[in-house]
Amino acid sequence: MTAYRLNNIEAGHNGFSLTIDDWTVEPGSMVAVVGPNGAGKTTLLNVLAFMEKPKRGTLSFRSRPVDYSSPRSLLALRRNIAYLAQNPCLFNMSVRRNIEYGLRLRGVPRNIIGEQVKQILEELEMTELEHRNVRELSGGEVQLVALARTFVLHSSVLLLDEPTGNVDKARIGIVERRLAEMNESDGVTVIFTTHSEVQARRMADSRIHITAGRVAVN
């Protein structure tokens, strides 16, 4: 079984187009998507997160082609993954409620939500933020909460658009360590974008490069 398989895909809008002839993501791998701004990294992640329908081609998730005609199955697919969008927006409520949001959508019982939120706050060393309102947070803290909101879902697939983009230098290590742990011990498939070749080499076991909508698979 493959995690993702992309076949002859073309995606994008407003004149921009991203093409991928053939690309497979194995379960449990850690993939870095590298490329300059505007190359199509975000479009690729949107496709992988079932947020954007490709103009042509076939996307398979866990060896099954995605059925774009059924909103119901798309919703189910989206709930199978955890997606951190680029430049994320937090909701106007406490940090804790923001982190709970995805779990509540998935109908996780309240007591389990409580435990998991507590756990993720400790893992990312941000317990002091729990009851703060998001309007009081710094840019780095916002990114951290958005990461926690994604990690807490404990999905088998993590899609992260610039995960450490805004994070303070001191905390980048914490985030990267946590990602490596999830990938190695829990077998989580991680696909993240970065424009840092150094970070890509440090973290990932495979890398793809995107330049102006063209994908080169290493």
């Binding site: 997606y83 994320p88 959508l105 998935r106 879902l153």
Partner: peptide
């Protein structure tokens, strides 16, 4: 409202109604 609210909710697994 922040235009990202809707897409962020969807990306986290919200149905259109949610």
């Amino acid at each position: 409202l922040d235009t990202r609210v809707h897409s962020t909710a969807i990306s986290l697994g919200a149905s259109p109604m949610q």
